[in-house]
């Protein structure tokens, strides 16, 4: 529109003091004094976050630093850390050349991808099936969420009992139906142990995907669906062309959260098998735990942790990107 008419009258240079919401327009700050001044002007705001930051620093920043440091040292058993000796990258080379490492990495990959993908698909499908209102929907939803609420320790014991090689109910049913001669040994068998544990993990995790996708489904605009219906789209086409694209961001966030949780899971394999038999169900976390607390090899365990850290940072990058992608979409909508 018209240029500001008074600009020539008010042409004198104003020394601008930077205050207020910088995020509104992020520009280069006029030097350090500007930033310091800003921090000073917002000093009261920090008081609100200070308690949280203080706790975080102590329990998070320090451990991260310490883990990185320790990963370059050889540590004697028993944690007399005065006696540690610097060995450079030896811990890392030892890990990357060990056979167990590749075995465990492969297991972690199967565990994470399998659990994440199947949990997501089952959760999404359940959310879709629950989207239409029917009698008892609320009760059904509550029941389906319970596995997510109860402790993973309890879940591990329940399923351990279900899989039991002598008295397990699945084995008994298979024998009863004539599908097996004797109860199969699910978790004491190198080839079936990982899939069996994944089933348990999915049992606990699909409700999370379900909740997220149910919430996502509620944001799909009815008008779009109705418009598609008028345009002659079938139920499947409406899902594929309207619902699914609309849920892309929620799906990405959900899958990332699931992937991170699975990558970090510990309890189910630890309690059900302890990583066995012969490392067949060891994943990174259980392996690190065993190295550190079982065999007291702190240096190697720390190096493992640092590698894990790097992988998670990469995942975290995508997580943040997906989150801010969400925000962008909201903004333009």
């Amino acid at each position: 529109m018209a240029p500001p008419v008074r600009s020539d009258e008010q042409g004198h240079a104003t020394v601008t003091i930077v205050t207020g919401k910088a995020e509104a327009r992020r520009r280069l700050q006029p030097g350090r004094s500007g930033t310091l001044r800003k921090i000073w002007e917002h000093r009261a705001d920090y008081a609100y976050v200070l308690p949280a930051i203080a706790v975080m620093l102590m329990v998070i920043a320090y451990p991260i630093y310490y883990t990185i440091e320790l990963s370059f040292f050889k540590t004697p058993p028993g944690l007399q850390l005065r006696d540690k000796t610097f060995i450079g990258f030896d811990n890392y080379t030892a890990i990357l050349t060990s056979q167990v490492f590749w075995k465990v990495t492969w297991n972690t990959l199967i565990w994470t991808l399998g659990s994440t993908f199947i949990s997501f698909v089952l959760g999404f499908a359940t959310a879709l099936a629950l989207h239409r209102d029917f009698i008892g929907r609320g009760v059904l939803r509550a029941i389906l969420i319970i596995p997510w609420v109860i402790s993973a320790v309890a879940a591990s014991y329940i399923w351990k009992w279900i899989y039991h090689s002598d008295f397990g109910i699945i084995g008994a049913v298979l024998v009863g139906l004539g599908l097996a001669d004797r109860p199969p040994n699910f978790i004491d068998n190198v080839s079936t142990v990982l899939p069996s544990l994944i089933v348990v993990n999915i049992w606990r995790e699909f409700p999370f995907a379900m909740i997220m996708m149910m919430a996502g489904l509620q944001t799909v605009p009815d008008q779009l669906l109705r418009a598609a219906k008028v345009d002659g789209a079938s139920a499947w086409q409406r899902f594929w062309h309207v619902t699914f694209p609309h849920l892309r961001n929620v799906s990405v966030v959900t899958m990332l959260l699931l992937a991170v949780a699975n990558f970090n899971s510990f309890i189910i394999p630890w309690i059900m098998t302890g990583g066995g038999p012969s490392n067949a169900s060891h994943i990174w976390i259980t392996h690190i735990y065993e190295l550190a607390f079982g065999r007291q090899r702190w240096g190697v365990a720390s190096a493992y942790s640092v590698l894990l850290f790097l992988i998670l940072m990469t995942l975290g990058y995508f997580y943040v990107r997906a989150l801010s992608g969400n925000e962008r979409n909201e903004g333009s909508a």
Binding site: P4, R6, Q10, T14, T16, I17, V18, T19, G20, K21, A22, A24, R25, R26, R27, L28, Q29
Partner: peptide, 13 residues
């Protein structure tokens, strides 16, 4: 009266 947000002048003299 002047109000700036970062480098952006929302209210100018």
């Amino acid at each position: 009266l002047v109000k700036t947000y970062g480098g952006f002048k929302a209210v100018n003299d």
